[in-house]
């Protein structure tokens, strides 16, 4: 019974995600047509427009076919891993992305980890000391973090910790795990500052709301330890915190664009900037699709997370 409901739940969520990805892929495919100039011109880029190259592009992208067929053959290529050829470098887009994806994923993961480690404890501390000095400090810090743009924080961190104090490297990715972590710390911290602000707000507000609930008073009244009572409240605050965490991960994926440029890191963000600058439409298309997929996956994970945390989501119970 429990396993069947789990299976049905996951199937529903997967189907929903698939629909979203298909719809978005249509939009991404449309980028080709939205770019200024003719499609051939866009795909040719800076290459000379000889009859051979035009014929090659016509054949490769089936430009004579009706639009739905073109979309399907593009999608077929995408599914086979063929994301087209970069106009800027002439190498397959898939390879370029493959080279750079790990760095961006590592950066996003590291940034998320840092923000969770800092944001949730601070939010909890604020909620437990509501209205007192600790709380006000936490809230103020959260607002400052939220309103600081990542690239500005990045520059500040570079100036202070890399240039003045010399604790961290100015640029580069490093060799070996420890060195890589050392190199990625400042960029991850730059990404995390805003996320910490958001997590502090969400977790503090959620916990304060839960601590005022009847079940917390009831738990205290029947003699549960403070730790057990806090555990009750924290577990119940997890849904809003998960929501925030999902927004943070997707926000960070977007934030890497600025931070990678600031720290001169060869990740997807800097690839996207270069590709946009050079009107490298196949690369932009592939990157947009990849980001779409990543965001869809994060949302799927958050949905699954909800149902792990709250059985009412999975079993369709009414909350009233």
């Amino acid at each position: 019974m429990a396993w069947r409901s789990w299976g049905a739940f996951l199937l529903r969520r997967f189907a929903g995600t698939a629909v979203v990805v298909v719809l978005l892929s249509i939009g991404v495919f449309g980028l080709l047509y939205l770019a200024p100039g003719s499609v051939q011109q866009t795909l040719l880029g800076t290459r000379p427009a000889t009859p051979e190259t035009i014929a090659a592009i016509q054949a490769r992208y089936h430009l004579d076919d009706p639009l739905p067929v073109q979309y399907l053959s593009w999608l077929g290529g995408v599914l086979r891993g063929d994301l087209g050829v970069s106009i800027r470098t002439g190498s397959p887009v898939a390879d370029m992305i493959g080279d750079r994806l790990p760095l961006t994923l590592a950066l996003t993961g590291y940034g998320t980890l840092l923000s969770l480690l800092a944001g949730i404890p601070l939010g909890v501390a604020g909620a437990l000391r509501r209205g007192r000095a600790t709380d006000r400090l936490v809230v103020t810090a959260g607002v400052v973090g939220l309103s600081a743009p990542p690239f500005a924080v990045g520059l500040l961190l570079l100036v202070v910790f890399a240039a003045w104090l010399g604790w961290f490297p100015v640029y580069g990715t490093g060799e070996g795990l420890a060195d890589q972590i050392w190199h990625l710390t400042l960029p991850a911290a730059a990404l995390a500052v805003g996320a910490v602000g958001m997590l502090v707000r969400f977790s503090r507000a959620a916990l304060i709301r839960e601590l005022d609930q009847d079940y917390v008073v009831f738990a205290r009244a029947r003699g549960l330890s403070s730790a057990a009572v806090l555990g009750y409240a924290l577990r119940n605050s997890l849904v809003p915190i998960l929501t925030a965490a999902g927004l943070i991960v997707t926000g960070m994926l977007a934030g890497t664009v600025l931070v990678e440029v600031t720290f001169a890191l060869p990740g997807l963000g800097s690839l996207l900037v270069d590709s946009v600058t050079f009107k490298d439409v196949p690369a932009v298309q592939a990157l947009a699709l990849l980001l779409t997929l990543l965001i869809a996956v994060v949302n799927l994970l958050v949905d699954v997370g909800y149902s792990v945390v709250d059985p009412r989501v999975r079993l369709g119970g009414r909350t009233s």
Binding site: D214, Y215, V217, F218, R235, N236, D310, P311, T319
Partner: peptide, 16 residues
């Protein structure tokens, strides 16, 4: 000493 509260819909931890 123990307390039983008013609203059965809110007095239990909904997730446990």
């Amino acid at each position: 000493v123990s307390l039983l509260m008013q609203d059965p819909f809110t007095l239990l931890n909904p997730l446990r």
